[in-house]
C-alpha cells in the first residue's frame, strides 16, 4: 500500500510539473492577449506614442514575448523569480512577506472552519430530515447567499465602528501576542469561514447521506450497530473521498480568492498582489503568483486524492 502511495505521489509530482508548465504558458498567453502592455499602463494617461516607445526600449519589452517567457522560465529553473516590471524590485522580495501573511490567514481560517464544517455536516446527515438538519441547511445557504463584501463590511460596522472591540484594519505584521493575533484575525477569519464553510458542510452532508443509503451500511444497522458507530465506522470512510475533495476545493480559495477580504481589511496578502500584477501587466509577477496558486491547488487536491485512496480499500 505504501509503495502505491509513493508511486502515486511520484507520478503526481511529474504531472504537477507538466501542469505548472501548461498553466504558466496559459497565463502568459492570456496576459499577452490583454490589450496594453506594462509601458502603456505605467504611463497611464501620459502614454504618448514616443513616451511608450522610449520606455519599452528601456524595459527591454521589444524582445519577442515568447523570448521573455523562455527567459523567465529559465530564471525560474535556476531559482530566480525575476524582477518586477512595475517597480524594478525582485519578485521574491515583493512576494515574501505577503505570501507568509496569506499562508497565516489561510491556516488560521482552515483550522477554524474545517472542524466546525465537518461536525455540522456529519451531524446534519445523521439527523437527516430533522429540524436541526433543516436549520443547518438553511443557515448554510443563507450565509453564502450574502455577498462577501457585505459580510465583511457589516462585521466592521458592528465590531469596529459601533462596539469598538476590534480594529477595522488587519495589519498582519503588527502581531506580537496571541491576544493581538485574535483581535487582528477575528473579522477576516469569520468572513472567510462564512464563504468556505458552506461548500464543506453541504458536500459532507450529501456524501454521508448517500453512503448511509448503501446496502452495507443498512446491513450494519440490521446487525444492530449504534447510529454513531454506523456513521463513523461505516459511512464516513466511504464518504471521505468526496468530502476531502470538497475541503480541498474550498481551501484552495483561501490563497487567490480572498481579494475582497484583503481589500476591506487592508490585509497585505498575495491575492491583491496578483490583481495589481494583472492591472500593470507585470508578467513576471503574474506568473509567479499564478505558480503559487497553482502549486497550492495541486498540493491540496493531491492530498485529497491520496486520502481518498487510503480511505477506500477498493481503490488501493
Amino acid at each position: 500500500m505504501n509503495t502505491q502511495i509513493l508511486s502515486l505521489v511520484f507520478k503526481r509530482l511529474l504531472v504537477a510539473i507538466v501542469t505548472l508548465l501548461i498553466v504558466s504558458f496559459a497565463v502568459f498567453f492570456a496576459t499577452e492577449m490583454l490589450p496594453g502592455d506594462v509601458a502603456e499602463i505605467l504611463l497611464g494617461q501620459a502614454a504618448t506614442p514616443e513616451a511608450v516607445a522610449g520606455l519599452r526600449t528601456a524595459m527591454h519589452l521589444n524582445d519577442p514575448a515568447i523570448l521573455r517567457f523562455i527567459r523567465w522560465l529559465y530564471g525560474l529553473a535556476t531559482g530566480d523569480l525575476g524582477i518586477s516590471y512595475a517597480n524594478n524590485m525582485p519578485i521574491s522580495h515583493l512576494i515574501g512577506g505577503r505570501f507568509v501573511n496569506s499562508l497565516k490567514l489561510a491556516a488560521v481560517t482552515a483550522l477554524f472552519s474545517v472542524p466546525i464544517a465537518l461536525t455540522l455536516g456529519i451531524t446534519a446527515a445523521m439527523l437527516r430530515g430533522s429540524l436541526y438538519d433543516r436549520i443547518v441547511t438553511t443557515i448554510t445557504i443563507a450565509v453564502i447567499s450574502v455577498p462577501e463584501f457585505m459580510v465583511a463590511t457589516s462585521a466592521v460596522l458592528i465590531f469596529a465602528v459601533y462596539l469598538k472591540w476590534l480594529p477595522a484594519l488587519s495589519f498582519a505584521n503588527e502581531v506580537h501576542s496571541f491576544g493581538e493575533l485574535l483581535r487582528v484575525f477575528a473579522m477576516p477569519v469569520i468572513t472567510l469561514s462564512f464563504v468556505i464553510s458552506a461548500q464543506m458542510i453541504r458536500m459532507t452532508r450529501a456524501a454521508v447521506v448517500e453512503t448511509l443509503n448503501t446496502p452495507y451500511v443498512e446491513m450494519a444497522l440490521l446487525k444492530g450497530a449504534s447510529r454513531r458507530r454506523m456513521v463513523l465506522k461505516h459511512a464516513l470512510p466511504n464518504a471521505l473521498g468526496p468530502i476531502v475533495n470538497a475541503i480541498a476545493l474550498s481551501l484552495s480559495y483561501l490563497l487567490g480568492g480572498v481579494i475582497i477580504v484583503e481589500t476591506i481589511f487592508n490585509y497585505p496578502g498575495i491575492a491583491k498582489l496578483m490583481v495589481d500584477a494583472v492591472a500593470t501587466r507585470d508578467l513576471p509577477l503574474i506568473q509567479t503568483c499564478a505558480m503559487i496558486f497553482c502549486l497550492a491547488y495541486l498540493f491540496l487536491i493531491t492530498l485529497a486524492d491520496i486520502i481518498a485512496i487510503l480511505s477506500n480499500p477498493r481503490l488501493r
Binding site: K164, I264, N266
Partner: peptide, 19 residues
Amino acid sequence: YFAISDDTARVNALLSGDI
C-alpha cells in the same frame, strides 16, 4: 500612509479610530 481602495472601508476605518 497607505491606501484603502474600498470607499466604505476607508470611512469605517476613520470612524473606528484606526486612521
